[in-house]
Design a binder for these strands. Structure first.
Lengths: 144, 144
DNA sequence: CTCCCTGCAAAGTGTTTGCATAGTA
DNA sequence: TACTATGCAAACACTTTGCAGGGAG
């Protein structure tokens, strides 16, 4: 089992200042690892504890967390970004119904390659996004 | 070899009205299949032939082409969308240097799977994005 | 002739930036 | 104390929307 990081430990580990806003964001992420949030979803969830939390601050905090590689940013359809933890290499699953993104572990990535690699192209890595229906949406769909 | 589509044929095939704006966008795509463009890159390229082409029209045309499945829309980092042809199933390669997206054919997709599929999850397909350096950027990098 | 598409302009959404204040180390 | 992060508000980029006029079928 992997280490159980705390928000404060993650920040100190990357030599970042420990502020309530940064801890709040990370605690939210750590409470549901593998889930992804928009900047505003995060802000609204934190407003209960920090009524003054500003939009700009949310973006600055997330930007800092992404640049220090604690978090990842995903460009989702619609032009919005999704943020989540980046504690281990992983791939993504997107539910076509509820549009939520989940971290998953993929098998078979090592078998991926280009069929007709244009000359000079050098591949570093492959990112996989699985599309389908998540468990809770399937229950709903089956019930309909 | 696949059929050589023309802009007009593509539109008639999907029962869409043939307008100069729609043909212009498709001709641009057909001239360099596998390349992807932002809405404004497209508009600027077409302004030479159609000086009045409006931003709103560009988006409406692209939206129609995406909905009729002639084109695909990719959510790129930075919040902008990239548009390109969707004539055959394909995967993508992104150059980490110039950020351009290219269509590629991938091998080994059939071997992909989830390591620990959460219960009830049903996967329909897997999209792969290869990251690396494209041919022309590698020449530049090597020369530096 | 009818209906849809285009051009134009305004509004909308998500994100970034600048600056004074507050807070961390 | 020195320096950085926060809150606030304005600016920004990209995209969507509404409507009147023009073009395709």
């Amino acid at each position: 089992m992997a280490e159980a990081w705390t928000a404060e430990a993650l920040l100190r580990d990357r030599l970042l200042r420990v502020t309530p806003q940064r801890q709040g964001v990370l605690q939210l992420f750590l409470a549901e690892p593998g889930r992804h949030w928009t900047a505003d979803q995060i802000r609204i969830r934190l407003l209960g504890d920090m009524p003054g939390l500003a939009r700009g601050t949310t973006y600055k905090v997330l930007d800092e967390l992404v640049r220090s590689r604690i978090c990842e940013e995903i460009a989702a359809p619609g032009g919005t970004s999704l943020y989540g933890l980046r504690l281990a290499p992983h791939q993504h699953f997107v539910c076509s119904r509820c549009q939520r993104w989940f971290d998953v572990e993929a098998l078979g990535i090592e078998h991926l390659g280009l069929a007709n690699p244009p000359s000079g192209v050098q591949v570093f890595e492959a990112a996989v996004v699985f599309h389908g229906i998540c468990g809770s949406c399937r229950e709903v769909t089956d019930a309909e």
